[in-house]
């Protein structure tokens, strides 16, 4: 009883902390200085249709590198905690097996489409990587005793991570800036081959996220 009261007091206290923020909140009518610069720069400097992508990959590229690192560390932690696997399980139904063998290639293709078009349409490396991981999840559901070749997963993951950093360092060598998109020609606005290095960086992120999430799912399946 005392615990419940304390929890309620904490919630009411939080509400009182948030209330002044909420009651005085006014939606702004215009973009902030920084956001306007990002939108203008996305058109004039980077030739990128999707402004969110140009913020993530170029303007705040260092943060994205940190984000990918956090995801990598989580994968390593999960692999370290849940190493061993055991036990055989009941096989999946024929319906699921047939459907998943048919859908697997389509889902992977859709994931690749999402991360190669990250600079043009909503989407990008993280979303595309998650879609690819769901394709592998479907494969695992349809064949419960299937074994993945972890060497290939690790090679894909480490090489895409390494190339991501190499592209960043190329920008430093050419004195343009770390993780700059302008290390290769920017192309024509709105076309698939445009926005300089952004599609390449996002493809590497997509491959890295896809292989990492497949790794996480595969390790958790072993439990």
């Amino acid at each position: 009883m005392i615990k419940k009261t304390l929890v309620l007091i904490a919630i009411v206290g939080l509400l009182m902390v948030f209330w002044p923020l909420m009651s005085n909140f006014e939606f702004s009518q215009n973009l902030s200085e920084l956001a306007s610069n990002y939108v203008r720069g996305s058109v004039n400097e980077l030739n990128t249709q999707n402004v969110v992508t140009s913020v993530i990959v170029t303007y705040r590229g260092l943060d994205t590198l940190g984000e990918v690192t956090v995801l990598f560390l989580a994968t390593v932690g999960i692999g370290f905690l849940l190493g061993k696997r055991k036990g055989k399980k009941r096989p999946a139904s024929e319906l699921l097996q047939t459907t998943s063998s048919f859908l697997f290639a389509l889902i992977v293709l859709f994931g690749v489409y999402i991360f190669t078009h990250g600079h043009l349409t909503p989407g990008g490396g993280f979303q595309g990587g998650v879609v690819i991981a769901t394709a592998f999840l479907l494969l695992m559901l349809s064949d419960v005793n299937m074994k993945f070749n972890h060497t290939i997963l690790q090679i894909v993951e480490s090489f895409s991570g390494a190339f991501y950093i190499v592209i960043g360092i190329v920008g430093l060598v050419l004195t343009i800036g770390f993780l700059s998109a302008e290390i290769i020609p920017l192309g024509e606005f709105g076309k698939l081959i445009s926005a300089g290095a952004i599609p390449i960086i996002y493809s590497f992120i997509g491959l890295k996220v896809g292989s990492e999430l497949t790794n996480i799912i595969d390790t958790m399946r072993g439990e």
């Binding site: 956001a35 913020v55 705040r60």
Partner: peptide, 22 residues
């Protein structure tokens, strides 16, 4: 600049979703 919403919160949330997942 007069026609789109703020891109920065979207970019922040994209980062936050991935970190939350991990």
């Amino acid at each position: 600049v007069q026609q789109v919403v703020d891109p920065i919160p979207s970019a922040l949330v994209l980062t936050a979703i991935v970190i939350g997942l991990a």
